[in-house]
Computed example of a mutant assay.
Amino acid sequence: MNPPARDLAQYIANRAFIVVKAAIWAENEHGEVLLIQHADHSHWRIPAGQMRPGESIEETAHRELWEETGWTTDHMVLEGLHSGPELRQLHTSGDEDYYVIALFRTRIIQDDLVESRVNSEAGLKFFHTESLPVLNEFTQMLLARSNRKD
Rank of each mutant, 00 (worst) to 15 (best):
A39T: 06
M51L: 12
A144G: 09
V77D: 11
W71A: 09
R148N: 03
I46Y: 07
N2R: 15
A144Y: 07
P133F: 01
V134M: 13
L34V: 03
H41I: 05
A48F: 10
I24G: 02
L35E: 07
R52E: 05
E86L: 12
H82M: 09
L143E: 07
F104K: 08
N28P: 01
G84K: 08
I101D: 02
N119P: 00
A39C: 00
Q50T: 15
E58V: 11
H75E: 12
T92F: 08
L65C: 07
L81S: 14
A122F: 06
E115N: 14
P47I: 02
L135H: 08
N14E: 09
G94Q: 03
D97F: 08
L124E: 02
S56E: 02
Q140I: 04
S131R: 09
W71E: 11
K21D: 04
L103N: 07
L132F: 06
V100H: 12
I24F: 06
H43Q: 14
E27C: 10
A48R: 13
H75N: 12
D95T: 05
L90K: 11
D7M: 15
G70V: 13
H41F: 11
F127Y: 13
K21R: 11
L81P: 00
M1W: 14
T73G: 06
M141L: 15
L132A: 10
P53E: 05
E64R: 12
D40A: 14
I46K: 03
V19M: 01
D150P: 01
A102K: 03
F17H: 08
P3R: 14
H38Y: 07
H75W: 07
T73W: 09
G123W: 01
V100M: 12
L135A: 08
V118N: 01
N119A: 08
S131F: 01
N119T: 00
A23L: 06
